[in-house]
Amino acid sequence: MGDKTDVWQGTLALMVLKTIEALGPLHGYGIARRIEQTSGNLLSLNYGTLYPALLKLEQEGSISSEWGVSENNRRAKFYKLTRAGRKQLEKETRNWEQTTAILARFLAPSGDPA
């Protein structure tokens, strides 16, 4: 339990977008569970914090929502990616890859100075 990581500010949105892209329209609970699973249960996600993040994405027009029925017949709100959201996801993915690549270089065991 002790080595679970909290979600970094700002990365949650990217995870949400990616999750919805991968699974298609999905409700908040499903997104939360999926993020936890994908992280290999290394992330400790307070499910409640997901909803303001979803609202923010919706306000920004990256996702849209619709009421529907879940696989086991529960009423739930389903979120799906909009075209703007798809673009944002691409952009943020690129940014993130760049950032991690840079950090990776810093953190990599130093090789030859050449």
Binding site: H27, G28, Y29, Y51
Partner: peptide, 29 residues
Amino acid sequence: SRLSGMWPDERREREFADEIEGHLQMHID
């Protein structure tokens, strides 16, 4: 959208309550 959210909106409150309720139910299931 946030500014327009300033107007008290009971529907929004109720919808969110429903959403949370649905979330909890799925989790409990």
